[in-house]
């Protein structure tokens, strides 16, 4: 028999306060379609699963580009209108700037061992996370279910999203 004790128990100290209840479930909304706005949601969803937290991702508006089969490999970094890029807007708007910034960012992402979007979506889906597309956006952009990558579990309404999010922390990105 092996008995496991933590440091505190070993020193005979009682924990002063009860630890806050851990998060059990998150619902992450990805609403934007540029590379730098898709990754944070994916990283958070994957990170949740790694911690044993249930995760659902809901793609809406331009975020849908990240799960549209023909577009998900071609997401670009936006180089205009983002002061934190430290590229003046007029320069950021020059031809080729977005392609250049995208190439650079993809390289940095790969260095951190973060997969490209398609592989990341497959990986997250394999962890047991659910992936949904927003019904209103699908209708607005005249998309079909067949436009999406195979990991998409369905096209659902906002109401259904809230139903599925019962007991979840909702994170909007």
């Amino acid at each position: 028999m092996t008995k496991f004790v933590t440091h505190d128990q070993k020193n005979g100290e009682e924990q002063a306060t009860a630890a806050p209840k851990p998060i059990e479930k998150v619902s992450i909304i990805i609403s934007k379609g540029s590379l730098e706005e898709v990754y944070p949601g994916l990283i958070m969803a994957n990170g949740a699963r790694m911690e044993g937290i249930e995760a659902t991702i809901f793609f809406t508006f331009f975020g849908l580009d990240a799960i549209i089969d023909k577009r998900m490999d071609k997401l670009k970094v936006a180089t205009v209108g983002n002061p934190a890029m430290h590229i003046p807007t007029m320069i950021g708007g020059l031809p080729g700037m977005s392609a250049f910034a995208t190439k650079k960012m993809k390289k940095e992402i790969e260095k951190l061992d973060i997969p490209p979007v398609r592989e990341f979506i497959e990986m997250i889906h394999d962890t047991g996370a659910e992936i949904y597309a927003c019904r209103a956006t699908v209708d607005m952009f005249h998309l079909e279910e067949s436009d999406f990558c195979e990991q998409v579990d369905g096209v659902i309404s906002v109401g259904e999203f809230y139903e599925k999010s019962a007991g979840s922390q909702i994170i909007f990105t």
Binding site: F4, V5, T6, H7
Partner: peptide
């Protein structure tokens, strides 16, 4: 089989 060992873990439950 009958010896009881006591093993210390850190705060996160990993081996100290």
């Amino acid at each position: 089989a009958n010896t009881e060992k006591t093993i210390v873990l850190d705060q996160d439950g990993h081996l100290a």
